[in-house]
Nucleic acid binder design. Sequence first.
DNA 1: TCTCTGGTTAGACAGACATCAAGACAGCCG
DNA 2: CGGCTGTCTTGATGTCTGTCTAACCAGAGA
Lengths: 125, 125
Amino acid sequence: MLKQASPLALVELDADAPCCAPLAQRRVPAEAAAVLAPAFKALGDPVRLRLLSMIASAEGGEACVCDLTPAFELTGPTISHHLKALREAGLVDAERRGTWVYYRARPAVLRQLAALLTVESTPAS
Amino acid sequence: MLKQASPLALVELDADAPCCAPLAQRRVPAEAAAVLAPAFKALGDPVRLRLLSMIASAEGGEACVCDLTPAFELTGPTISHHLKALREAGLVDAERRGTWVYYRARPAVLRQLAALLTVESTPAS
DNA sequence: TCTCTGGTTAGACAGACATCAAGACAGCCG
DNA sequence: CGGCTGTCTTGATGTCTGTCTAACCAGAGA
C-alpha cells in the first residue's frame, strides 16, 4: 500500500496554484486552515522534520528507507510510522523499486507552506 | 504572567541570524529540529493557524483577544490556551494595555520558518 | 519452493493534548 | 470601596500521538 489514497488533507495542497495568500496578508479561512494545519502538524515532530530534510536534501531528491532508519535511535516500525505521517500529509511520495522503498519530497507543497509563512520585508518592528 | 519566560523552545528562533539553511539544502541537525519542531507543532492546529493569521494580518499588526474569541465557536479559556501555545512557541507576543490584552506576531520567526521550507526553483522533477 | 532481508501493519501502553467548567486575577467605573 | 468586565489559570476528562514488540507482506536468491 505505497500509493496511499491521499486523505482529504491535501485536497488543495496538490494544486499548483497557491491555495492561500500569505498568512500575514489576509486571514486564513477556516476551510484552508483545516487543509493546511495537518501539513504543519506533520512537521511538528523533530524526527519527521529530520526525515523530511534528509529526503529533500538527498542526492537525486530521494532517499531509501534503509538509509534513513540507521540515522535514528528508533525502531524500524517507528520510522515507518513517521514516514507514513509525512506521506499522509502530502509532504512526500513513496515508491518501491525492487527490494527497497524510496521516498521523495514534494517541492510544490513545501513551497506553498513557505509562501504561507512569508512576511513582507520588515515593515517596522 | 504575560511576559512568559520563553521556554527553551525558541532559543534560536529569536536570533536574527537564520538558524538553519533550507530544509532541502542540507540535513537539519537533531538539535535544530528539536528547536524548530515545536514552532511547526504550534501551527499544526487549525484554530492556532487562524489565530496567528488573524493576529499577523490585523491592522497595526496586533489583535485584541476580545476580537479573536468571537471568531470561533470555542470558549474563552480554550482560545486562551491556544494563544498561550503560540506564545510559548515564540510565534507571538502578548501585552496588556488597560483592560485588554493585545497579541502581536513575530515576523522574524515566521520568516525563519518560511526560509526553512523554501525550495529552490524546481531543479528537475 | 524455502528462506532471508527490507519494510509495513496491528495491537498495546504511557504521555501529551484539546476542550470545558469553575475559580482567580487585573483593571475600570460607579 | 464594591461590583463589573475581560482574561488567564486550574483541574478534570476524553482523545490523540509516539513508541515499542510481534506478526505479516514483498522481492531476491538459492
